[in-house]
């Protein structure tokens, strides 16, 4: 299953590996240790989430998705996608596989952009667990206020670009 994205990733890996190797300061070894840690951390989660998603795709009626989140529904999918993205209380494995599931069931590009962008900016679990302690409520309030329209703008732009 060779695709442009796979080739791009392979090329990028080689280029960055070459740059790191030329440094000769142990960068490659440090990257290798980090790579092993990340794979051990996330790959098992990914496998489990893919299994759950595969079943979800069978259970969720695709008509329901295409009716409410499909291109034919105009700008409504962007609103739904943006609001849903703000409410996903989980990490990237869940958010992105949910998006992949919705994409497979016929959700529009704009809705997916709004969903992912909203999750990236407003991931509720990240705000509650990390940002309230790292940033403090005042900065968090400012950040959330000014970023509120972003998922919907991004979704609308994506809708017209696609």
């Amino acid at each position: 299953m060779i695709s442009p994205s796979l080739l791009f990733l392979v090329a990028l890996l080689f280029v960055m590996g070459y740059i790191a190797g030329r440094r000769g300061d142990g960068s490659i070894q440090r990257a290798w240790v980090r790579f092993k840690k990340q794979v051990a951390e996330f790959l098992p989660r990914m496998v489990l989430v893919i299994i759950g998603t595969g079943f979800l795709l069978q259970i969720i009626p695709s008509e329901l998705i295409s009716e409410n989140l499909g291109r034919g529904a105009g700008l409504k999918p962007i609103l739904i996608g943006g609001l849903a993205g703000m409410l996903v209380p989980a990490g990237p494995a869940v958010a992105f596989t949910t998006a992949a599931t919705l994409a497979g069931a016929g959700a529009s590009e704009g809705a997916l952009v709004a969903f992912i962008t909203a999750w990236c900016i407003f991931a509720i679990h990240r705000i509650l667990i990390y940002e309230t302690s790292l940033a403090g409520p005042k900065f968090l309030l400012i950040r959330c206020t000014v970023a509120l329209p972003i998922p919907f703008i991004a979704g609308t732009v994506a809708h017209y670009l696609s």
Partner: peptide, 26 residues
């Protein structure tokens, strides 16, 4: 569907982890 998703995603994700690790040190 699950087998297809895994065959498609896991090689990409593994490559991407390698790139992210290199980015982190560079």
């Amino acid at each position: 569907v699950q087998v297809e998703m895994m065959a498609g995603m896991l090689p990409r994700i593994t490559l991407a982890f390698g790139i992210a690790a290199l980015l982190w040190v560079l």
